[in-house]
Each structure stands twice: as structure tokens, then as C-alpha cells.
Write a protein that binds this DNA or RNA. Structure first.
Length: 426
DNA sequence: TCTCCGATTAGAC
DNA sequence: CTAACGGTCTAATCGGAGA
């Protein structure tokens, strides 16, 4: 029996356009019409493109060195990613969206689902959302509305793609035959949850368009592709199976790792790098009020250079008791790096993973090992300073090895929103 | 045979 | 001049080990 309330559900997916690039443009309005891209860590790959850059054929995820010639030819400007800036802009956008409904799921740095069920004149509300976000943050967004998350996502895709929609598309406004014909024109790969591999495999079953997937034989689909796709199909049929998650669940594992700007051969540099990763991972752990009881540390050589000797060691250790103390966990991490390290390899990446994560509240305390209290105060202070003045302001130790592994970021914009000294001169 | 576990796969952004 | 290719996270699934 279908719940009649569910039928009239109105879910919006608000997605920022070309988010990282748009953030950069807020502080560099002179770049409004130039083709620009933002690069991943180490200036490795293109991860955000302005419309002009897309039009010139720059692909998402493309390695920068492949794009370089094209970029020089057409004057495409590349910027190193500035996550402090993007996170800050994201927070502003998300809090504005929150003003339109109490029921919001912040799905990613640039997307939010909003429950708008029961609200009248959705079209006008959607334009108000767009305008308010633009006015208050300078970030352009598109709004897609549908009866399920999957359809809201698809509606957003349509809003982005068709200029006539002016950035807003409501799937619920269509009649049945309009829906059929529209879904028949969109390829399955555009559906949330259907990636490249699945699209390819689906094609061999003659499932090519969204409409094909909607009408596919459910039992076969499930047998061949699993439960996830069955949910997706139901969502396309307007049966909501994926709920709004308004409170972000605590992470079950926390990884902090990074490729280095250069190859690293020195043990102390590796230890230095891992100690910073450990500090970041532990801060995330404390931010969600958790403790971890398993830590894993890994080193990697450069897999893109198969002619060089390869070595990718990885050790995990269970902690005697759960911890979120940077100093404590770093002692283990440091020890593990030393244990795994072998001369004669050029290391390109390292990292730490914290797992077996439990809530701090119901942590088993070991009655024979008191102490701790002093350390948690230290950690609180550390977090406060780093939150106030930026990540990495205070770290556990670094004897200057930093520069030998530091990320390559040759094209970073200033920290406009988090650093006074970066503010443009009046 | 059942269950548990780690590794692998696929997807998102 | 050359070499240069991200980082997190989750859920499902699979195959082997052990009960």
C-alpha cells in the first residue's frame, strides 16, 4: 500500500555550479570570463572547470600535464586547490540553504538535499534560493526537485544542462508522458549510483537510457547487479528508498594521507609527514567525539614509475585502549614508520588510518591506567588554536623536514577568508 | 555448512 | 631541461579460514 504522503514528497537537491572555480572567482571577479580550472593536491589533476574550460575540452580528472599544452594555447588559468577557502564558502552556502527548511542533508562540500514537502509555489522558492545564495556568497547554484533523492539529483542534472530551465527544474511538474519521453533521452550513466562500469554492463542488457532502467525486469536486475541498483530503480519509479540523513553519522574510519611534492628517501622526513597526518586524523576523530582502537600506517613508492623498485608496506596495530590523543597515537605511528622503513626506495606517499572507532562516551576505561585527563586538556587547547588560526598552526614536532615532502602547490590563491593578511588591499 | 573477516570492487565527489 | 596522474569514505560482494 502506497503512502499517499510519500507521493507528494518534494525533495530538492541544490548543487553549486563548478564549485571550486566559482569560489576562486568570488575573490577574483576579473576571472569571470576566463577559462579556469582548479587542480587536485600536488597540482595533479583537474578537479573543477569553468564553463569556458569545459568548452575547450578539458576533462574532469584529467592529469594537469596532459592539459598543459591546451591550457597555454588558450590561456586557461590553473589554480592549486585551496581547501580552507572552499570549506569556508561551503559553510556559508549551507547555512543559507538551512534557512529555507529545518530538514537539510549536507551531502557533500557543494551539495545539499532539502526537504520542501508541503511548500507551495516551489518554483518561486527555488529562484529565491538561487538568488539568496548568489547575493550572500557569490556562488551560483542549480536546484532540482523530485519525489525521491535520485529524481531530485536527476532534476538537478537537467537544470544544469538545459539553459532554458534557468537553473531550476521540478520533475514533479511533468505529466506521465513527459516523464517517459524525458527519461528516454537521458543516458543511465547520469543516474546517481550508476557509474561507468555499471553503465557498460547495463548496455549489454539493452539498458541504455534512464527509462530503460526504470522499466527493466526487477528480478533480473537484482540478480545481475545487486541490491543497490534495485533501490535506484525503485527511486526512479518515485518510491523513496533513500532517506534524508540530517545528522551526519560518525565516521567508521579516518584516513589521512598525501602524495609528496617530491620523492622522499629520508626516514625523518617520512616520520615528519606521518606525524602531521596523524595530527589531522586525530583532530577529526576528536571533532566527532570518538576514539580509535586500531591504527594502520602505510608507505608507498611511486606506482606510476614501474621501472623504479616498488615497496608498499603497511602495518596495523590494535591499541591497548581506545585513544584520540595525538601525542599517544603519534608515538605508535612514529614507531611503525621506523619499523617499515627500508633504505633504497623513493617514497611518494604515506598515510595513517584510524579504525575500530567508538564513541568517546561509552569507552571502556582501564581502571589500572588512569592519567589521560591532562592530555585531553592539551588536545582541547590544540584543537582550539588550530581551528582559530588554521590547520597546522601548532603541531606536535617537526624538525624542519617539512620542506622535503611538502605538497606541490605552485598556483594557490591566498586564504582570503581565513587569513587577514591575505585580504585584498583597500 | 555457517559465519566471520579481509580484500576487492564500485560508486560519489 | 624533464617528468609529471587526488584523497576520503561507504556499502556490497566474494572467497578462504575456521568453527
Amino acid at each position: 500500500m502506497q503512502n499517499p504522503k510519500q507521493k507528494s514528497r518534494q525533495l530538492a537537491l541544490v548543487d553549486c555550479n563548478n564549485f571550486y572555480v566559482s569560489c576562486e572567482r568570488v575573490f577574483r571577479p576579473d576571472l569571470i570570463n576566463t577559462p579556469i580550472v582548479a587542480l587536485s593536491n600536488n597540482d595533479g589533476c583537474v578537479i573543477s572547470r569553468s564553463n569556458e574550460a569545459k568548452a575547450l575540452g578539458v576533462k574532469m580528472g584529467q592529469p594537469w600535464f596532459e592539459v598543459k599544452a591546451l591550457a597555454e594555447e588558450h590561456g586557461i588559468l590553473a589554480l592549486s586547490s585551496n581547501y580552507a577557502l572552499y570549506a569556508d564558502m561551503s559553510n556559508r552556502v549551507m547555512s543559507i540553504l538551512h534557512e529555507f527548511t529545518p530538514h537539510q542533508e549536507v551531502y557533500s562540500i557543494d551539495e545539499s538535499f532539502l526537504e520542501l514537502t508541503g511548500i507551495q509555489n516551489l518554483k518561486s522558492i527555488s529562484y529565491q534560493i538561487k538568488q539568496k545564495v548568489m547575493k550572500c556568497t557569490g556562488i551560483p547554484v542549480c536546484v532540482g526537485i523530485g519525489p525521491t533523492k535520485t529524481l531530485a539529483k536527476l532534476a538537478n542534472h537537467i537544470a544544469k544542462k538545459h539553459p532554458r530551465s534557468k537553473g531550476v527544474f521540478n520533475f514533479n511538474d511533468l505529466n506521465e508522458s513527459q516523464k517517459d519521453s524525458l527519461l528516454g533521452k537521458i543516458s543511465v550513466g547520469e543516474v546517481w549510483g550508476i557509474g561507468r562500469r555499471l553503465s557498460q554492463r547495463l548496455a549489454s542488457y539493452n539498458v541504455v537510457t534512464v527509462q530503460d532502467l526504470k522499466l527493466a525486469h526487477t528480478a533480473t536486475l537484482r540478480a545481475q547487479f545487486g541490491v543497490v541498483i534495485e533501490k535506484t530503480q525503485r527511486e526512479l519509479c518515485e518510491h523513496s528508498c533513500i532517506e534524508l540523513t540530517e545528522v551526519e553519522p560518525a565516521k567508521k574510519q579516518i584516513v589521512s594521507s598525501r602524495s609528496f611534492g617530491q620523492m622522499v628517501t629520508d626516514l625523518n622526513a617520512l616520520k615528519d609527514a606521518v606525524s602531521l597526518f596523524t595530527a589531522n586524523a586525530c583532530q577529526k576523530l576528536r571533532a566527532q567525539n570518538s576514539h580509535a582502537s586500531m591504527i594502520q600506517v602505510f608507505l608507498c613508492t611511486n606506482r606510476f614509475r614501474p621501472e623504479l623498485p616498488q615497496y608498499n608496506p603497511c602495518i596495523s596495530v590494535p591499541l591497548p585502549q581506545p585513544s584520540n590523543d595525538t601525542v599517544h597515537i603519534n608515538r605508535w605511528a612514529d614507531y611503525l614508520v621506523g619499523k617499515m622503513f627500508k633504505e633504497g626506495y623513493q617514497y611518494k606517499k604515506a598515510g595513517i588510518m584510524l579504525s575500530e572507532i567508538s564513541a568517546s562516551t561509552h569507552r571502556q576505561m582501564d581502571m589500572w591506567e588512569p592519567q589521560e585527563q591532562a592530555d585531553t586538556n592539551l588536545m582541547r587547547t590544540l584543537d582550539a588554536i588550530n581551528t582559530r588560526y588554521g590547520r597546522g598552526t601548532v603541531t606536535v614536532s617537526t624538525q624542519g623536514a617539512y620542506k622535503s615532502w611538502q605538497m606541490k602547490q605552485e598556483r594557490k590563491s591566498p586564504n582570503y577568508t581565513t587569513d587577514w593578511s591575505s585580504a585584498p588591499e583597500a
